[in-house]
């Protein structure tokens, strides 16, 4: 009896310790990045163009590029991921073909992103001839993000209680209507949480973009909203250096005198945005869940 109690107590202490270690690592990391970077960040830093060799450059274009590529990635990923998730959860039969598809998805999910970047370079940039561009970057990131999205949607659909699904079927809904009217609405909070979380992942990705969206940005005129103009920020056929690529580039081959400051500031902004994504995923998800289940 004594020994069992002791074992129980030890387990509690040890597990709490591990949890504490994780929290310490995270706060130390965040604290380090933010404390170094936060003093560099001001409105001017966020809204001025980067400079190639003088000090005092900002990250305006890079920040915009990051969000813009994220937007296009999600435009591609969400429908594909939903379709894939619905197929895997509702239509795929339990057979070898499905097992093979699953292996493909898992392999794709564990591919190093730099390999995906190279794939993007060969296929989207070179083979299709579109060159370094937002489109090539977004397509590469779509491949990067798709396995996660498919799995998120599949798991969310599978987590809907069977009774609900049968409830729909028993009311004379077709399979498709049961999916759209019963399963998807019930799974929506989890799907949305998954989407926002993967936004954070995509936003911070650098390696997959180095050779697909490129490492440069043309001179942008934010007043020009014609998406076909070469100096328009909305043009998806232009190269676009994102924030994380910019940090990497400034750090590794920058020649500006204040490269440390720019990199630190950029990192702080990057981490903050990702934090916002993660926190809002939680808040939004639980808010939706509450709204659907209780008052």
């Amino acid at each position: 009896m004594q020994r069992r109690k002791l074992a129980d107590k030890t387990a509690t202490v040890v597990l709490t310790m591990f949890a504490a270690i994780i929290v310490i690592i995270l706060t130390a990391l965040l604290g380090y990045v933010l404390s170094l970077g936060i003093q560099q960040v001001n409105w001017d830093f966020l809204t001025s163009k980067s400079s190639s060799f003088r000090a005092g450059g900002g990250i305006q274009d890079q920040l915009f590029n990051s969000f813009y590529i994220l937007l296009w990635t999600m435009i591609f990923t969400i429908p594909l991921g939903l379709a894939g998730g619905i197929y895997m959860a509702e239509y795929a039969k339990d057979n070898r073909i499905t097992a093979f598809i699953r292996i493909c998805i898992e392999t794709l999910a564990s591919l190093p992103s730099i390999v995906l970047g190279m794939f993007g370079l060969l296929i989207f940039v070179n083979a299709t001839g579109m060159g370094y561009s937002i489109l090539a970057g977004a397509l590469t990131l779509t491949i990067f993000n798709l396995p996660i999205m498919i799995r998120t949607c599949e798991n969310a659909l599978r987590a809907v209680p069977l009774e609900l699904k049968e409830g729909g079927l028993a009311l004379g809904y077709t399979h498709w209507r049961t999916i759209t009217r019963v399963l998807l609405p019930s799974a929506f909070p989890s799907i949305l949480t998954g989407i926002i979380l993967s936004c954070g992942l995509v936003f911070g990705e650098a390696a997959a973009l180095l050779y697909s969206a490129g490492m440069t940005t043309p001179k942008l005129d934010f007043g020009n909203l014609n998406p076909f103009a070469s100096d328009s920020p909305l043009n998806i056929m232009r190269p676009a250096e994102t924030l994380s690529v910019h940090i990497w580039k400034v750090n590794s081959e920058g020649i500006i005198p204040d490269l440390r400051d720019v990199a630190d500031g950029g990192a702080a902004v990057l981490v903050t945005v990702i934090l916002i994504f993660n926190i809002s995923a939680r808040v939004f998800g639980s808010w939706l869940h509450k709204k659907l289940t209780a008052k």
Binding site: E163, L164, E166, G167, L169, A170, G172, P185, S186, L292
Partner: peptide
């Protein structure tokens, strides 16, 4: 079509959310 004619109620109440 059959299930419109023959309705079913389950063990655990399953109202839609």
């Amino acid at each position: 079509a059959l299930r419109k004619e023959i309705g079913m109620v389950f063990q655990r109440p399953n109202p839609f959310p």
